[in-house]
Design a protein around this nucleic acid. Structure first.
Lengths: 338, 338
DNA sequence: CTGAAAGCGCTTACAG
DNA sequence: CTGAAAGCGCTTACAG
């Protein structure tokens, strides 16, 4: 059916070994080179990389395993990873586990069955087990966004604590003392770090912390709305709120719109990772942003190095800085005095 | 290194043929079944689907080739496709061509080298050539979003003309007669259909068309801003504008925010494919939306059928309806009277 | 530089 | 039901 190296060899009057050698950059006689080129062109030959991979044990494919492909953070990561990897000749197989721990394990299994050369993952369950399977098979893994207990692997993180510290300090400096924060699940690494930044900022400025203003959520939109609302409905309502991921920031935007709240007159607000939303929102939001593309590029870089060099080298932990973007004349934050 | 079917066979005291048969759902003696299971579990065997694919000529992989992975339309398509395909046991290889015709061709080549079982593509260049290569190799292709001249393939489209017709009619019924439209490249199928809907609505309502209000763009953000601005700066400025894809809608939002325009007092506006933006924007926008997830699911369904049944059947063209979503009390549209 | 041969890890008729 | 053998399309030492 499809034309193979055998057909090319026959057409060129050479052995498949010679054709293979040429295909892989080896030297052949000029006359043979011409014959091979001619055969390839006229037959429309295309190398079968599946067969090649069986022999070379390289599929030139990297798996990307993420919690949910529906989150913008993930899609931007994928975009950056795919671009970087494809420049290096690698393809990307995308898997999401749809926020399901069992699927996380199964998709990892599938990736390994497919003989991917490496895996970039943003761990969902926090369990080391699915990741360990890859390591056991000698497949390098790069972690994104979160650490996993018991695993020492190449990891790309963001300086979450500092990012939260900046945001909260910004609010404190504007005079706020009752600052609400919408977090994620308590077990989630990023949420923990962002809370740490909140607490550090409060402490630095000598402001007592009201535990009632610290609100966990599932970091999804619905949960974010509930958390935001809970904060708003307190009798001792906060004068400012910091939503600490994209989904809860979006959720806050929805609630604000629905309730007809005026920002910053009714509430000061700093969001997270929602650049395009911040540009569209009126007044322009102040937000903190993660260097998402850079995270993806760095992860791609790390996995390429691992694929090339193996697992011997010590694991690297790369912590990328984020940034605070002030809204137009920071109108989303109002000066506040008791 | 890795454990193979040979190791399992040896451990179970059977031939690899028997192990293979069992792995593929064949019947073996109960005692042998137990022995194989035990061997698999204790050795941690995992089938090598690359090797299997070489023999079966099925890689259980579908390639998705899109113009740019940075466009939200594409990422939502990918999400839907990946989900549907993975339920059927297929993996997804994502390729984008970064709005580059040559890359489109090269990535197609890579997908074919990888022996994907099928390809879902949203054509970029509009050239039949890269797609024809897949067909020639017997790899089924499903087209998304656009037709390609000279190719009769399974295609998933949206009823763009009707969608635009509805939006423009909505504006006309609110009294507008000078209605600007921001389109894409003139050669782009979707842009052509949306323009057709605009023209049909104008004609139906007996409103003369001013060609100066019909503005093409590159359907990107920067180009969208320029187009929107050009429309605004006309001396005979339109009283309403329809932006006809996500990027140009977002661009309009940026400009409106930047210029401090009030919607709908200064301008009535209907956007496209920007649901989350429409929910956040004040006042809530009226928009038309494509059934993006459904497009992805349908495309996945079609490619699965093709992979199973081959290329014999006649090509199917599926046209999905979109929807108009009215903003909160449609405040983004103002009644207008000369 | 070139080619015969072995082998990557599977599956698949075909005997038994 | 089970197993020996051939073969999927390549690459890779190893001779020549």
């Amino acid at each position: 059916m499809a034309v193979t190296i055998k057909d090319v060899a026959r057409a060129a009057g050479l052995s498949i070994a010679t054709v293979s050698k040429y295909m892989n950059g080896g030297h052949v006689l000029e006359s043979n080179r011409a014959a091979i080129e001619l055969a390839i062109a006229s037959l429309g030959y295309r190398v079968n990389v599946v067969a090649r991979g069986l022999k070379t044990r390289r599929t030139m494919t990297v798996g990307v395993l993420i919690p949910s492909i529906e989150q913008i953070f993930s899609t931007e990561i994928i975009a950056a990873v795919e671009k970087k990897l494809s420049e290096a000749g690698f393809s990307t197989i995308v898997c999401d586990c749809q926020l399901d721990a069992e699927l996380e394990s199964r998709k990892m299994e599938i990736l390994l069955e497919k003989q991917v050369d490496g895996i970039i993952t943003m761990p969902f369950s926090g369990s080391a087990e699915p990741i360990q399977k890859a390591i056991d098979q000698g497949v390098p893994v790069v972690l994104i966004d979160r650490k996993v207990e018991g695993l020492s692997l190449d990891t790309v993180l963001v300086d979450n604590e500092n990012l939260a510290y900046q945001a909260v300090s910004r609010l404190i400096e504007a005079g706020h003392r009752r600052i609400g924060i919408v977090l994620g699940p308590e077990t989630l690494y990023t949420s923990q770090r962002r809370l740490a930044g909140y607490l550090a900022a409060m402490q630095t400025h000598g402001i007592p912390v009201d535990p009632g203003l610290i609100h966990p959520s599932d970091y999804q939109i619905a949960g974010g709305q509930a958390a935001f609302l809970a904060l708003l409905e307190r009798s001792d309502r906060p004068t400012a709120i910091f939503t600490t991921n994209y989904e809860t920031t979006f959720a806050a935007g929805l609630m604000i719109n629905e309730k007809g709240l005026a920002i910053p007159q009714d509430l000061s607000w700093i969001g997270f990772d929602s650049l395009s939303m911040a540009q569209i929102f009126k007044p322009r939001l102040t937000i903190v942003v993660q260097p998402i593309r850079q995270i993806g590029e760095t992860a791609a870089q790390l996995i390429l190095e691992r694929v090339a060099n193996g697992l011997e080298l010590a694991a690297r932990e790369i912590i990328l800085p984020g940034a605070m973007i002030e809204g137009l004349s920071t109108r989303s934050i109002r000066k506040y005095a008791d």
